[in-house]
Computed example of a mutant assay.
Amino acid sequence: MLSLRLHKTVFVFFINTLLFSWCNSFAFAQEELNVSDSNETFEKNGICYRTLNQSEVEVVMSPRTAYSGTLKIPASIKYNGKNYVVSAIGDYAFSGCDSLKEINLPHSVRQFGEGAFWKTPQLKRINIDKGKTRLFTENGILYKGTTLITAYNPDLNCVVKAGTSTIASYALCGNNSELLSVVLPESVDTILASAFQEQTSLDTIILSDNVKFIGDRAFQGCSLLRNIRIPDQVRHIGYFCFYDCTGLRNVHLGKNVEEIGEGVFYDCISLRAIYCHCPTPPSMLHIENGVFYFSNESETIEVYIPKNSETKYRNSCDWKEFHLTFSATIK
């Protein structure tokens, strides 16, 4: 057993650390769109569009009024005498549309921007027009091929479809305040930025051994989450990944974790034990705020490490700053 007593340094937590990450550190695979440098935004029949090139447009956020009720998006539109295919839903296109209840998507849509359905608590139906498409819905979840785009009306104990490989950014982020658990299939290997952010009722999630990537702020604000196991294939844990997970008590770090991002366990005030299966101490990023910050400096965290790793951890600058005291090792 390795006992770790944290003596925190008081510092100001600037407001910019509370902002959401607007960019993914890892882009999920999707069909490429030929985007022009000169884009024009316009409105037609209550829907705002932005030109992507000479033949395609994307739906974008309305600058005047939030979309509400039932929204039917056409497969194509005519603007300034030219026909355009509606091929994408832009970044945050429906974000904050509190009264949006139903969306009809055309089969022509093949790309979704980050956070397109974020904060749409009343959205209960997504319909896909007939035609050749990789889009489909199942049990209140929208998929594009093997990517989970958004869980707009899932079961409280959500089971993700077998064969799914990627959980998109903001896919299960705060839309469903009563979501209790999520079961991910063995096929999931990528969890993108903010995928589960602010899912405040989520208390159970099991990550399969095939997960290789966990993005920034992926579980930020999941305040009821008690335990998490980082799979062995994960090498980097995205910054602020578990920030404000105030109920988190136990963390298992897989044996191949090499780097822990800035603020990963920031404000995890209930954290009691870290089971670090890494023979080599993971490095910690300290860009501005460091990895740990606790409101109670008298708390003791038990850290368990592999056999024969004591010297490495004792000599690690990243771990020494937390005044490590060794008493035994993990088997």
Rank of each mutant, 00 (worst) to 15 (best):
K130D: 13
C23Y: 15
A93R: 03
F11M: 11
G263W: 00
L142S: 11
E56V: 01
F26W: 13
I128N: 09
V291P: 03
T164N: 01
T70H: 13
P121V: 00
L207Q: 09
I149K: 12
T204M: 11
T246V: 08
H236V: 13
S298T: 12
R226E: 14
T147W: 05
H286M: 05
Y84W: 06
L100M: 02
F242P: 05
N296Q: 09
F292H: 04
G215S: 14
F196Y: 10
E138H: 15
S68N: 09
A195D: 05
N157H: 13
C97T: 04
S309T: 07
N256Y: 12
F213M: 10
K82S: 11
F13K: 06
D216E: 14
F265S: 03
E43R: 04
R314N: 12
I287T: 06
Y304V: 07
E32A: 13
T146H: 10
D209Y: 10
G263K: 00
T65F: 12
I274K: 07
M61N: 06
V183P: 00
S108N: 01
I287Y: 08
G290Y: 00
P306T: 04
T137E: 11
D189I: 00
V251H: 07
I149R: 11
H252R: 05
S68I: 00
E198D: 08
K331W: 06
Y152S: 02
V12P: 05
V251N: 06
N45H: 05
A328G: 15
L202W: 10
V211R: 11
H277F: 06
H236G: 04
N296A: 10
T300M: 14
T150W: 07
I149F: 12
G261A: 05
E288N: 12
A29K: 14
G140M: 03
V251F: 06
S194E: 10
P154N: 09
L184S: 06
T190N: 13
T325K: 15
G113F: 07
Y79A: 03
Y266S: 04
V264A: 10
T204Q: 14
C268W: 04
G261L: 02
I141M: 15
R229I: 13
T41H: 06
Q122F: 02
L142M: 08
D129M: 09
F322P: 06
V12H: 15
